[in-house]
């Protein structure tokens, strides 16, 4: 059975959530939806930090590596001296590597967000599940209806 608590007020909502957790309800049995990001919820429910930073790190590192590999690789592939500059002119390649670091880091972070949040949530899109402006706590009591 699902027991639902609805609040208009953030303080009352947080108080109720704390009460539930303190009374021994396991955070996994609680589903919380809020109209905006409420930092305190993560502490009360003991949510683990997001793995998103791993995606960001991998993306940024891949972009940096790709930027240098791409520019240096193509320069060495067909060495052509122009403007009296060295074949591998690293300072000028920093720009390309920097931009690709940000591009890959940003895009892979976004893809990571979609993956971790299970977006696009097709069942929710099809069923048309809505989220209201209230603070809602749904407690799975584990009892049969």
């Amino acid at each position: 059975m699902i027991r639902e608590y609805k609040f208009d007020d953030k303080a009352a909502f947080l108080h109720q959530l704390e009460e539930l957790v303190r009374s021994g309800v396991h955070p996994r049995r609680l589903t919380v939806t809020t109209p905006f990001h409420v930092h305190e919820v993560e502490h009360i429910l003991h949510l683990r930090p997001s793995w998103l930073k791993l995606f960001t790190l991998i993306g940024a590192a891949a972009g940096l590596t790709a930027g240098f590999a791409f520019t240096v690789g193509t320069a060495l592939d067909w060495p052509l001296r122009t403007g009296g500059k060295p074949i591998v002119a690293l300072p000028t390649y920093i720009i390309v590597a920097f931009e690709l670091t940000i591009l890959f880091g940003g895009v892979i972070s976004f893809l990571g967000f979609l993956f971790l949040s299970r977006f696009p949530d097709i069942p929710a899109i099809v069923s048309g599940t809505e989220c209201g402006p209230e603070f809602i706590i749904r407690e799975d009591t584990g009892e049969a209806v």
Binding site: T34, V41, G106, S109, F110, F113, S117, F119, D121, C131
Partner: peptide
């Protein structure tokens, strides 16, 4: 995308927004 505003979604969202802001600034 089927956004429901759950605690998990907001958690990942907040991190993503911060990372994108941190990338966009430089």
């Amino acid at each position: 995308l089927g956004w429901q505003g759950t605690a998990e979604q907001w958690k990942h969202y907040a991190w993503l927004y911060m990372f994108l802001a941190a990338f966009a600034t430089p």
